[in-house]
Amino acid sequence: MIEAVLAQASIFKKIVEALKELISETNIDFSEAGISLQAMDSSHIALCNLLLRDDGFKSYRCDRALTLGVNLNSLSKLLKCAGNDDEMRIFANDDSGADQLNFSFESANSERVSEFSLKLMDIDADSVDIPDMDYQAIIDMSSSEFSRIIRDLSSVGEAVSIDATKQGVKFSSAGDAGKGSILLKHQKSVDGDSALATSIEINEPVSHSLALKFLSSFAKAAPLTDRVSIHMTEDVPVMFEFKISEIGHIRFYLAPQIDD
């Protein structure tokens, strides 16, 4: 038996919206430690890693670790049946092999309870070991600013160059019709009065050129949190981390370009 209760369905709805453009089907792992998933996009250029810790749920029970395969488009449709403020219960019974994942949504005044279930699927997916790394540069910035920059530069070109120095981070793109760039200067302290401030921890200047279509997908996670951190080292995948308050994170990894 697995059973996880989230105080607000809206968090899970936003998570699925953040993932479904990049990934159509994924295995979800349930364990004593919580719920996690790792999946690559169909081209194996981007990797997504979600973690929801057990103690971030209103209640959490997992008698035996289970891996359940879901179609994220179907899950997204199902979650549209939940009110944002509904309490959401996810449960599955593994006595005879789980073939469906069940959801119940209870309104704040407890007067309405709806129940839905999602058929599970067998998914044979490659998984990778993500090494712990010290990055050369970590940019911490507003997630809405990140979304805006990606949207603005997508009107100019197909790739963005992200150049991080001690002074700031510059996003630039060029295409047939022209070019554009946005420079965000490093602020010494990110406090409550400067929600849009950017801070950069850096050992040495780093630059990456990345496809904007993947970053547009990653930006779908912006509604989950006010901040995003971009972790960069030359010649290794760039990691974009969106922390989900009190419960976990979504991390996206994007493979860099390599010399032919």
Partner: peptide, 14 residues
């Protein structure tokens, strides 16, 4: 010339 890398070229398959 540069080509787009894949995740599996950087992280070992688990």
């Amino acid at each position: 010339a540069q080509a787009q890398g894949k995740i599996g070229e950087f992280f070992p398959l688990g």
